[in-house]
Nucleic acid binder design. Structure first.
Length: 259
DNA sequence: ATGACGGTGTGGCACCGA
């Protein structure tokens, strides 16, 4: 079984690319972030024709997340329970897989702008709430995948310039401590279960030839619970869509789970 | 330096992202 995550940076603009990608990468399910559209504008029909059910939590202009799945989606939760938030950043659903239920938690983590700002404070509160909720989710769902755009580069090797960008957004000690706290819940970064190319990133700035110079960050992640860890047989970042005309600034990440 | 690029809303630009 293959699961993926992709920040599409506007589903309206990227729908043709998403459909192309799904045609050549027929993953069983995918978490999408930054839809930047309301539920009423979600392209249910085109995706249904491509073979996917959809659970959607849209928002105008910013944010917006969805889970697409070839299997039926149950128990859909939108945003973090008991954490008031005007921004649509989280959608969770349970997939009915042949191996039993699999909980998929798809998140567009807060960016946070810069340490010391209100947005950074919001990021910290959001991360604390996510941690609290996942602690409970993991008690109920042994087979759980947390994926999405984390907006955190967990380690220095996940950044093209860890020295120049030290203590800036995505690189701060506080953000990395929150990422570690998620790992401490028993989650594992699927990408790091395998030997990977050096300078592997999932996002590149549109400006200054960021992609061509491979000046990127690895901020899109797939974390798996203990029950799934032994099932992971592969994980990779697909840079191909970033080479398209009008690309998203993020690349998809794909994980393969064995039976 | 605080821009560059791209998306959105509604605009003749400002804002936000990462």
């Amino acid at each position: 079984m293959k699961l993926a995550t992709w920040n599409v940076n506007s589903l309206s603009v990227r729908l043709p690319q998403l459909l192309d990608w799904l045609a050549t990468n027929p993953v069983d399910a995918i978490g999408l972030q930054e839809l930047k559209l309301v539920d009423e504008k979600f392209p249910y029909e085109a995706l249904q024709e491509a073979g996917y059910h959809a659970a959607v939590f849209g928002q105008k202009t910013y944010n917006g997340v969805a889970i697409l799945s070839r299997m039926p989606l149950n128990d859909v939760v939108r945003n973090i329970p008991n954490h008031a938030d005007e921004q649509s950043r989280v959608i969770a659903a349970t997939l009915d897989t042949p191996d039993g239920p699999l909980r998929m938690v798809n998140c567009y983590f807060v960016n946070g702008q810069a340490p010391g700002t209100d947005k950074f404070a919001y990021k910290m509160l959001w991360l604390e709430a996510l941690h609290r909720w996942l602690q409970e989710e993991l008690k109920v769902h042994q087979r759980l995948v947390l994926l999405g755009d984390f907006n955190v580069a967990p380690e220095d090797r996940d950044s093209f310039d860890p020295v120049g960008l030290k203590d800036t957004i995505h690189h701060t000690v506080e953000e990395r401590a929150h990422f570690q706290a998620l790992l401490d819940l028993g989650l594992t970064d699927a990408y790091r279960l395998f030997e990977q190319p050096e300078k592997s990133y999932s996002w590149w700035d549109y400006r200054m030839l960021g992609f061509q110079k491979n000046r990127g960050l690895r901020i899109d992640h797939i974390l798996v619970s203990e029950a799934l860890r032994g099932r992971v047989t592969a994980c990779h970042i697909d840079r191909q869509p970033r080479k398209n005309p009008q690309p998203s600034d993020h690349a998809p990440v794909v994980v393969t789970l064995g039976g």
